[in-house]
């Protein structure tokens, strides 16, 4: 299951930014995740935090809580509609 990996990755990112200063760590972690994570990964980890966020370190949890909701998660396994190539 990928979620375990996402938790691990978020903790790993947070553990680097913690060394750069406690006060900016959560914001930097959030920024990193926003810059590099595909929306479906962000949506999964945000949902995980809402469901309790088991396994997440405090800074990682704070960071994910500060992430904006993901608006454009690709629909998964939906049978409806013909996808267009532009959005």
């Amino acid at each position: 299951m990928s979620l375990d990996k996402f938790v691990y990755m978020a903790n790993q990112i947070a553990s680097f930014f913690v060394t750069q200063g406690q006060e900016t760590a959560a914001a930097s972690t959030a920024d990193h995740i926003k810059k590099f994570w595909d929306p479906r990964m962000r949506a999964a980890i945000i949902a995980h935090v809402k469901a309790g966020g088991a396994g997440l370190d405090p800074v990682a949890r704070l960071a994910i809580q500060s992430l904006p909701e993901v608006s454009s998660v690709p629909e998964v396994k939906s049978e409806v509609g013909q996808a267009t190539q532009t959005r």
Binding site: M41, K77, T86
Partner: peptide, 23 residues
């Protein structure tokens, strides 16, 4: 002449994970 997505996509290991997850 195309609208482009402003969100980052999947990296190789993420693609493989997403494949196993079905998306």
């Amino acid at each position: 002449q195309r609208k482009l997505d402003a969100e980052p996509g999947l990296r190789i290991p993420n693609m493989l994970d997403a494949a196993v997850d079905g998306s």
